[in-house]
């Protein structure tokens, strides 16, 4: 093997080296599988991935168990008893951390692409994969492959732990076999994954971390409130139910609030909120200069 010192490059050695020559003949060129592997390496090789996943899982667990403990009388709530609204919805109580978790997981989705734009890494990435679309497809795929199982595990543990805490009081508990419960549990993990994908799409479109996070959270949290004020009641309410957060609520709750879409339609609407922006992002990214 070539021994390299700092001021004497040994390109000739390395190239003349038989092992290099063999290597240069291998490799089949760009492939979707290769790009997937590449994006997987990128995702696992920055600290923020593990940190945000742990934070999102932690938020689910801490909030869910806290509400459940209050409901079950293990902990006493302060003034106002914030858990009372969940008294008839043990599933919702255990999944109450979803609200905070989506903030964290949304940031993860945004950051896996905006970190490339803000550091300049994107130019290296798009030079290696000049067809560009495979990069976004691979990012969406590895993001889903990581977020969905981790969130599913966190939601399940929180649900089961939460029901155990609630059960220690007088209130009724939910089990995965009850109507709508399994849908709400899996749906919550799917919802969080969808928020991450929306973050990826917005991040690809806007390229700036701050602008993307503001836009994503605006769409998730502010839009329903704003639209409720601006739009007339009647068709305005119908429109509201199609917003991503409301569609999400419709299929992640066992006892949905009135005026929401049916869970089947809500899932399709929410999926469209995740997929359509990604398609738009892929087209825009393909066309603009990097």
């Amino acid at each position: 093997m070539s021994t390299t010192t700092l001021d004497t490059p040994t390109v000739s050695d390395a190239v003349a080296n038989p092992s290099t020559a063999v290597l240069s003949a291998t490799g089949t060129g760009l492939s979707m599988r290769g790009v997937l592997r590449s994006e997987w390496v990128k995702l696992r090789s920055v600290r923020s991935t593990t940190a945000t996943l742990a934070a999102a899982g932690g938020a689910l667990l801490v909030f869910g168990l806290l509400f459940a403990a209050i409901l079950g009388g293990v902990l006493s709530a302060g003034d106002g008893d914030p858990a009372s609204e969940f008294a008839s919805d043990p599933t919702g109580a255990a999944l109450s951390g979803t609200m905070l978790a989506q903030l964290i997981i949304g940031v993860l989705g945004v950051m896996i692409i905006t970190s490339e734009y803000t550091t300049g890494q994107i130019r290296t990435t798009l030079t290696a994969v000049p067809t560009r679309v495979p990069v976004l497809v691979a990012k969406a795929a590895v993001l889903t492959a990581v977020v969905l199982p981790v969130m599913l595990a966190s939601v399940l543990v929180t649900f089961l732990g939460g029901q155990a805490l609630i059960g220690s009081g007088d209130l009724a508990t939910a089990s995965l076999g009850d109507p709508g419960v399994l849908r709400a549990v899996i749906g919550s993990a799917a919802y969080l994954t969808g928020v991450a994908l929306m973050g990826l799409a917005v991040g690809t479109l806007l390229r700036s971390t701050a602008a993307s996070i503001a836009t994503l959270f605006g769409a998730l949290f502010l839009l329903p409130g704003l639209a409720g004020i601006v739009l007339p009641s009647g068709w305005g309410d119908t429109l509201l139910s199609y917003l991503p957060s409301n569609a999400g609520t419709a299929f992640t709750s066992v006892v949905p609030a009135p005026g929401l879409l049916s869970s089947g339609v809500a899932m399709a609407v929410f999926a469209a909120w995740a997929v359509v922006p990604l398609v738009v992002a892929a087209i825009v990214q393909k066309r603009r200069s990097a």
């Binding site: 290597l23 490799g27 060129g29 390496v41 090789s45 920055v46 300049g120 890494q121 130019r123 994969v129």
Partner: peptide, 29 residues
């Protein structure tokens, strides 16, 4: 400067090598 500052040199090169199905050995070389 077109690199992610949080990623190691090895992982940076690996992520590039894999796009073209080049082996990890090539990165070490």
């Amino acid at each position: 400067g077109a690199i992610h500052p949080g990623r190691s040199a090895r992982n940076h090169l690996l992520s590039l090598a894999y796009t073209h199905t080049l082996p990890a050995r090539r990165v070490e070389e």
